[in-house]
């Protein structure tokens, strides 16, 4: 299956989770479309082409998988940055977290998260969740045109 859209940005500090998620996304050959950042600060750099991402080309990511509990800048702060920036706010953001904390869920949705998924402990459930997410957001869902325009503006 060939992706038609931009890349998937995966922000998660846990190498194990990243490995498992990449494995799951591999089911739709999405694994190669994924850019991984290890903390919130790196995620922000990626989005704004700062730091080591200064030379990054291309559009806004088609999907952002965002872990909440990360070093430096946490997921909630990244989410706030994305959803408050007119050029970034249309990027679909799926909050992926180990936490079942209701307060996290509430603040994620309030900030404009497109989905909130608790990573299941069970391997099969976990793989299923990530597969479904990748399938839906990166393949089925048509992103809003503004997202691509935003990307083009940034390029230009």
């Amino acid at each position: 299956m060939i992706t038609r859209l931009g890349r998937i940005l995966l922000a998660d500090d846990s190498r194990n989770d990243v490995e498992l998620m990449l494995l799951a996304l591999g089911h739709f050959n999405l694994a190669n479309e994924v850019d991984v950042v290890r903390d919130g600060a790196e995620a922000v750099d990626y989005l704004y082409r700062g730091g080591k991402y200064a030379e990054r080309g291309g559009q806004n990511p088609a999907l952002m998988l965002l872990d909440l509990k990360m070093p430096k800048v946490n997921g909630i702060e990244v989410l706030r940055t994305v959803k408050n920036d007119p050029l970034l706010q249309t990027i679909p953001v799926v909050v992926l977290t180990s936490s079942r904390e209701e307060s996290d869920m509430v603040s994620s949705y309030e900030l404009g998260a497109n989905a909130f998924v608790v990573k299941p402990v069970d391997f099969h459930e976990f793989i299923e969740s990530v597969k479904n997410l990748g399938f839906f957001w990166a393949i089925v869902n048509e992103p809003p045109p503004v997202s691509r325009n935003g990307g083009e503006q940034l390029e230009g």
């Binding site: 194990n16 990573k119 299941p120 069970d122 391997f123 976990f126 793989i127």
Partner: peptide, 19 residues
């Protein structure tokens, strides 16, 4: 919060990598 977050993650990893 950390029980919910930090203890679940390693379990998920054990489970995943055993599979």
């Amino acid at each position: 919060y950390s029980v919910s977050h930090d203890l679940r993650a390693p379990l998920r990893h054990i489970n995943g990598f055993v599979e």
